[in-house]
């Protein structure tokens, strides 16, 4: 239902705009001078100055895959990250570990694991959903490439970025 909004009563000074305009000009002038004299500095000149040392522990950079201290690739290709990924950047082709493998008990591993970094939105849901502590968002943020293919991180690249992570739960190690 339509109803009338009570309009504020404007004083004469407000009606002729001029005091407000002058006040506004004063504010912008102050900002202009502060910036020009360098009294206020917000911008960081990126490629020369970097903030890398200050990145917090919880920084969400590029998602990566990790191996544990036993050299086992932790991903078991459960595809939950592929399922949760909002922009559908993850693509997994599951495979079966050969019987003679040291970790044959795990049975499953990712044959292919691609993350399309053009699609990735760095939301971290893949890390959150991973039941195997296999995918982590690291501090790499400058992901560049000259072609779309280059921007798709394959399994090798993901392990290269992720490296080894220690101190994780080892549920597959106990004799079951």
């Amino acid at each position: 239902m339509a109803y009338t909004v009570a309009r504020p009563k404007l004083t004469f000074a407000e009606k002729i705009y001029l005091p407000a305009i002058v006040a506004g000009l004063a504010i912008t002038w102050k900002h202009l001078i502060n910036t020009l004299t360098g009294r206020k500095k917000v911008t960081m000149q990126y490629p020369e100055e970097k903030w890398d040392a200050n990145l917090p522990e919880h920084y969400r950079g590029a998602p990566t895959l990790v191996k544990d201290e036993h050299g086992r690739e932790r991903c078991v290709a459960c595809q939950l990250c592929e399922f949760i990924c909002p922009p559908r950047a993850i693509r997994i082709k599951p495979g079966e570990l050969p019987r003679e493998s040291k970790w044959a008990k795990v049975e499953k591993y990712p044959e292919e694991f691609d993350i399309d970094m053009i699609r990735c939105i760095y939301c971290g849901l893949c890390e959150e959903v991973c039941p195997e502590q296999a995918i982590f968002l690291r501090k790499d943020y400058a992901i560049t490439g000259l072609s779309r293919e280059e921007m798709v991180h394959n399994k090798a690249k993901l392990y290269e970025l992720g490296g080894v992570r220690t101190g994780l739960v080892h549920k597959w190690n106990e004799k079951k």
Binding site: T28, H31, T35, V42, T43, Q45
Partner: peptide
Amino acid sequence: RVSAAIQDRV
């Protein structure tokens, strides 16, 4: 440049 300075940018 002026707009940037007014908005605290570069």
